[in-house]
Every structure is written in C-alpha cells, then in structure tokens.
C-alpha cells in the first residue's frame, strides 16, 4: 500500500488520480477498522489531515462553512452553531462515544454514508449543501444529492468532499437531535433530527429527518406539511408519524427489528418535537 499526505486539495486530487484504487483517509475510524478486518486494502491511501483548507470553519452572513476534516468533538463545541444549525451540533455531541468523537470527521461521516449514523440525517434537517472538488473543478450540491444509497455517494472517481455549508435558517427556528439507543455509546436504533419554528402555540416551520429508517436519511415533505400550521397536538404528531412510517424502510438488525423501529418512529417524533418546542420557547 502506498501512503501520501498532500498539503493542498489540488495535490490531493492529483494523488487520487494516480491510482484506480486510491482512497481518502479522514478520521480513519471506519476505514482503518475495515482495513484491520481485511474488508478493504486500498492501493493508495491519501491522508487529508495536512490540508489546512479542509480543517477551516468560515462564517458568512448566510451561514457557516465547516471543513470536511472537522472532527465531531469540534463540531459539538462550535458555539456559532445556533438556531436551526444547532441540529448538527446536537447530533455531533451525542453520537457514538468520546474516543470516536475525538477521531471521526464530518466529511468521513458523509462519505461513509452509513444509514446507522446520525450526521447525514442532521445535515439534511439543516438543509446543508456540500462542496466537492474533482478533476473538473468544484461543484456544490444539496446534501441529499450526495447521499444516494446505503454506503453510496454520488462522488465521482477522483473527487473529494471539501466542506459543508449550513444555512442560518429562519430566525427563531431551533434545531434538535434525539437518539434512541440500547446504551448511550451504541449506534442509535432510530434517530430524529429536526428544525422547528413556532409562532406562539402554532408551528410555523418544521423539517423532520430520520436516521436508521432507510438506506438514506428519511425526509417526507408531506409529514412536515402536516405539522406546519398545526398546534402540534397528539393527532397532528400521530399523522406526521404515520406518513413517516409509511415511507420508511427501517433497518432490521440486532438493535431492533424493522417492526420495532416502525413502532418507535411516532413515539420518538413526539418526544423530539416536545423537546424542540421547549427550546423554541426559551
């Protein structure tokens, strides 16, 4: 195996193009684990840790750009992630366990595209965009267009993810992430990421996204539409939950059967909404 530590995105792209089987190494938490198990053996490993641009956070009037190499711990402690953007901070501070949060990265989480993980769903809830660099230059796309299947992204050969844009979102909106897991350090059985805004007791904006409920984060416009304009009463939550369950294709594994997950969805939705509502009224 060959190994390189480029210092710029352009150098990284040049290295990725030298081998058919070149891979980016971000935090390494998943890639090294798969190499240890003999599941992958890349011919060339391109470590991204020396590329300063990928570790940079920049703020603009519209929102925040987070570098792909931001570790979960740094995202969890980023004080500028407030309002709607807080859904991403909330997910990063709860996911996995401390040692993984000290190692794994935002970009690695997106490019791994594991349906059990939480940041992809939180980023969809935050209406994030990603920037991708490749042989043909840079392009930016909504995060939903990056995540095309379980462990599958739309990244082309020789492309790498450079950064993620989080729009500030509506004034007064709050972001919140709720995970239900067997023990707190485990992958969630189901996770709910949402952005909510209230106008008095009436919901004026809702964007709900579920993790572990399909190959990619589950977002159903019709479920959001049920919540918007309602007072988030039990029957509104139940109807939104029903639409989400109907659209879901939950994982069926050691953490819970698909049936069990379908039962969890409306209950967790209710809990996540009432927690977010408290935050919105503070």
């Amino acid at each position: 195996m060959r190994y390189a530590e480029p210092e710029t995105v352009e150098e990284g792209l040049a290295l990725l193009s030298t081998h058919d089987d070149a891979r980016c190494l971000a935090g390494g938490a998943s890639l090294v684990s798969r190499m240890n198990a003999g599941q992958v053996a890349p011919a060339m490993l391109v470590s991204l840790h020396r590329i300063d641009e990928l570790a940079t956070t920049t703020e603009s009037a519209e929102g925040l750009w987070l570098g792909a190499m931001s570790i979960h711990r740094a995202v969890a402690t980023e004080a500028r992630l407030r309002g709607a953007m807080e859904v991403v901070r909330s997910a990063a501070s709860q996911l996995a366990h401390p040692a993984i949060r000290n190692m794994a990265t935002l970009g690695g989480s997106l490019c791994l595209a594991d349906p059990k993980t939480e940041l992809p769903a939180a980023l969809v809830a935050a209406s994030a965009r990603v920037e991708v660099a490749g042989p043909a230059g840079r392009r930016s796309l909504p995060v939903e267009q990056l995540l095309v299947g379980a462990f599958q992204t739309s990244l082309g050969k020789g492309e790498l993810l450079t950064r993620v844009f989080l729009p500030r979102g509506l004034g007064g909106a709050v972001g919140h992430h709720l995970r239900f897991s067997r023990v707190s350090a485990d992958y969630p059985t189901v996770s709910v990421s949402l952005v909510l805004a209230m106008d008095g007791e009436t919901c004026s904006h809702a964007r709900v996204v579920l993790g572990s409920c399909g190959p990619v984060p589950l977002h159903v416009d019709a479920a959001d539409a049920v919540l918007v304009g309602s007072r988030l009463e039990a029957r509104d939550v139940a109807e939104a939950g029903r639409l989400l369950v109907q659209a879901s294709a939950p994982l069926d594994d050691v953490r819970g059967s698909a049936e069990y997950r379908r039962m969890l969805i409306p209950r967790l939705l209710g809990r996540a909404l009432s927690q977010a509502r408290e935050l919105a009224h503070v």
Partner: peptide, 19 residues
C-alpha cells in the same frame, strides 16, 4: 486500546502512526 494523544482519549487500533 485507548491511548491519550495530546491529552485526549483515542483508539490506537484505528490510528495510523504515520499521522
């Protein structure tokens, strides 16, 4: 396999010494 890297717990089984 936990070790401390610059004071923070990290997993040595997932860390490449080259970095």
């Amino acid at each position: 396999c936990t070790v401390l890297v610059d004071g923070l717990p990290m997993l040595s089984c997932l860390s490449l010494p080259a970095r």
